[in-house]
Nucleic acid binder design. Structure first.
Lengths: 226, 226
DNA sequence: CGACTGCTTGATGTTGCTCAACGTGCGTGG
DNA sequence: CCACGCACGTTGAGCAACATCAAGCAGTCG
């Protein structure tokens, strides 16, 4: 039965590790795991958010359709909760989520989740930690973006993929140039231009979506100088 | 004794209202109320954050010294918790807070606060709600700012003061032009220019820091169009 | 009264967006 | 199978928005 699935899951969140035997059973009974393929939409903006969404494995982009243009808020790597604030702060999703690679998602009944917060202080505290860290991170990225010019933002994005996502100087970009532009808040043309600039200055090796960071020191310098 | 102070305080946060008799006593015993005058620094960036900070009354600006220039993150009106994420997510403050008018602050021992989260599910849930709403709000303001041009941001700021802070079309700006610029992420000169533009176009009546919104509809339109 | 701060205004340079043209790969329908 | 539309990517030219630089003005404090 499903009961056992969560119990023996080795990809539990920090909060879920604090649950006791009974609670884990409750979680198993009110939780559904779903597989998504690259490009699949996981949750849709403005839809009712009736579940807590946990990314068990894979890679996801959080994006939002603004009044003017699409914006990618961030890229999330498993394991992580997706948009907890949406779930609690409001009834509807404030953004969409799309899988960037094959991804496993657990949908958890929000009432069960809420009950855990009420009953299990350890669990609640972990969630609060999670939210706090998320906000700090989010805030800093906002701040950085606001002060940097385009070249710095693109450098940031490249370093983010290299260091945070793939832990390698050589990787395949999981998104298109348009998406890269939406992620950094610039235009498709600017993104393209800057990438070729980086290539010309021997900072990156680029073969369509395959990217190798050649001169990381310089890239980091560009990122920091803005 | 201090015990009674919190108990009979009529400016309790939503979370504090969920505390029981004993907990309120504990709060009273581990909480210090301090008065700040306009311009006083309440907390300082990079200092250790050993207390939860609650704004009981008054007005506060949260600002951060970036690598390039000062940035004002937001203006907070009582009652509200200040930078909970900093307190839990990290040991040091990620920003400074300065009083914009005479302000009452309660410093609460973080361990007592933490204990409430562990022991009192209602309390924990209120904090989670608070954090969630904060993040959603924060996120939307980031998004807006990123897509808007200067004139729209200034319009935003004026509307914010008129509607959120003073609930009046006529008010005295509690900050300098430089601060307004830091708040909207533009230069002092641009802020100044845009204000006189608004004045010339009969959108605002301006007498140094005294501002009256004359044509709110148009201002709102400017804010929305970007 | 002079130094200083906060504010305003104009002139100039830079950044990055828009628009437009063009190449490429992919899927669809005749 | 080819023609066609379509999404994606690249490149160049022109222009609008802003920051920067520079100068000047009013109020204030020692």
């Amino acid at each position: 039965m499903e009961k056992t699935i969560c119990k023996f899951c080795n990809l539990k969140s920090a909060a879920a590790k604090k649950l006791n035997e009974d609670e884990i059973c409750a979680l198993g009974n009110n939780c559904a795991e779903v597989q998504f393929k690259t490009g699949d939409i996981i949750i849709k903006q403005d839809a009712l958010s009736t579940n807590v969404v946990y990314v068990k494995s894979g890679l996801v982009k959080i994006h939002i359709k603004g009044p003017i243009k699409e914006r990618i808020r961030k890229i999330i790597k498993a394991p992580a909760y997706l948009c907890l604030p949406s779930t609690f702060g409001d009834k509807v999703n404030h953004f969409s989520a799309t899988a960037l690679e094959d991804t496993s998602i657990c949908f958890i009944d929000v009432n069960v989740f809420k009950q855990f917060i009420y009953d299990n202080g350890d669990f609640a505290y972990q969630i609060i930690l999670d939210l706090s860290k998320g906000e700090l991170q989010n805030f800093h990225s906002c701040l950085n973006n606001a002060q940097k010019q385009n070249i710095g933002r693109v450098a940031d994005a490249i370093l983010f993929f290299a260091n945070e996502i793939y832990n390698s100087n050589s990787f395949t970009l999981p998104i298109s140039r348009q998406d890269l532009a939406d992620l950094t808040g610039i235009t498709r043309e600017s993104a393209s231009r800057i990438l070729t600039d980086f290539h010309n200055e021997k900072i990156l090796e680029i073969d369509s979506r395959k990217i190798t960071v050649v001169n990381e020191a310089l890239l980091r310098q560009i990122s920091e100088k803005g």
